[in-house]
Design a protein around this nucleic acid. Structure first.
Lengths: 233, 233
DNA sequence: ATGGGTGTATCTGTATACAGCATGGCAATG
DNA sequence: CATTGCCATGCTGTATACAGATACACCCAT
């Protein structure tokens, strides 16, 4: 078993690059829920024809991030409350599996990435920026995914993250710089666990902080929904 | 929360139908590993152009069932041993989550389906037919998936099943009618659990039998590989 | 003034044509 | 006879053109 962490090499086909970019934009709320994705526009922007764009959009349909109807267009899905609940329910479960299911050994490189991330997070704490927070959180997710040795679990982990990201980042941006402090703490805890080589702990720490995040979503998002519903649309 | 089990309605777009059909053929070994999928042929067979076929094939790439290289073609993936191990590792974990993560209530209809399945399995036991076994096993998986209330877990469950199916069915066919008896027992146990409304038990029973299946794979498949490797290609 | 119907604009879905690429066979040459 | 280079063939990737479908606006009739 050679180090198969190299199989996440970035030799991506054009359509895969487009796919990832669109997913990022949805997760990072560049394309907020309800936003319409026009194939022709994207084709022009990426400098390709409509065909690869269609292919990319088609591939991300199974994530449930977009919904496309004939004659209307492709719109970014507004995830219903129940689905968000289910996504977070699964993320809590998956987190605990990170350390259980054939994890990768932690390398010096991983620790270095973690250190850099910690510095960035601390800097963010001093001067909060919603966009920057999103990027750092994303990098943390990628780093954790790299620690997962089981390819299928890694795939599931990313899928669940993609589905949760836009909602979470929407809440986090409004929650302000409190989330930055939480991120710093999360990274610190995780770094300590990684220094001990304890990946199971990494998973449990993730679980705890996903729980924190979910609570924030309940407070900010669902509370708003309830009041707005109560006040009559 | 209405009964959202209706949202797996079969109003499928053409490309989705093609996608499912191709997946079925791969899982059922109509397209064995290494088999080449030619877009032009499939287009003629389904009576459409190459475009929807391409779309369908493109969508199933994330399952890792096929691999396509430019100039060569699309071939059904030969899953390496390590990946099969990882898939089964995940299936064991997912099975235990079935009863944990917001399960559906068991309806009378579910029990009726189970009864019918049991009868078919018993009939199969009397006159074993590899193809028939595959179909019944597939129906059982679908039935179990319907019991999963969490849409994301259901998606993961199906993905893991798709990745494991072709390997398992290849072994089961060669293992002969012993697997039929095992299937009957599995359905009987599961039926008892469902009659008690104990979905957690359903999950654990699944876990046990997935373990049995994996052991069979190790015996039959990996043993062959090892000997053939030892004898030099 | 309002409701219904129709026309138009625009987007996705599909078909077809072409370019890039890899593979296998064939021929020429050492 | 072996080897190497070239060419033909067939596949996927991409681009473009057209058909189907839907929403919106406008207009006419009531």
């Amino acid at each position: 078993m050679q180090d198969n962490r190299m199989d996440l090499q970035d030799e991506k086909t054009p359509v895969e690059s487009i796919q990832l970019e669109i997913i990022r934009r949805i997760c990072f709320l560049d394309y907020p829920p309800g936003c319409q994705l026009k194939e022709a526009e994207l084709a022009v922007e990426f400098g390709v024809s409509r065909t690869p764009v269609r292919d990319a959009i088609s591939r991300i349909k199974h994530l449930g991030l977009v919904e496309t109807r004939n004659g209307v267009g492709t719109v970014v899905t507004v995830l219903p409350r129940q689905q968000i609940e289910q996504v977070y329910e699964m993320r809590l479960q998956l987190a605990t599996l990170i350390g259980t299911v054939s994890p990768h050994a932690i390398t010096q490189q991983d620790l270095a990435r973690m250190d850099a991330l910690l510095d960035d997070a601390i800097a963010l704490q001093a001067a909060f920026d919603a966009r920057r927070y999103v990027e750092l959180n994303d990098q943390l997710q990628i780093l954790i995914a790299d620690l997962i040795g089981n390819a299928l679990l890694r795939s599931f982990w990313r899928q669940a993250y993609f589905q949760a990201a836009s909602t979470w980042y929407g809440v986090a941006s409004r929650a302000g710089d409190g989330v930055a402090a939480s991120l710093v703490q999360e990274i610190q805890e995780m770094k300590r666990a990684m220094e001990r080589g304890d990946i199971a702990a990494v998973g449990f720490i993730q679980r705890v902080h996903i729980g924190y995040g979910y609570n924030r979503i309940i407070e900010h998002l669902f509370a708003e929904e309830d009041t707005s519903v109560a006040s009559g649309t």
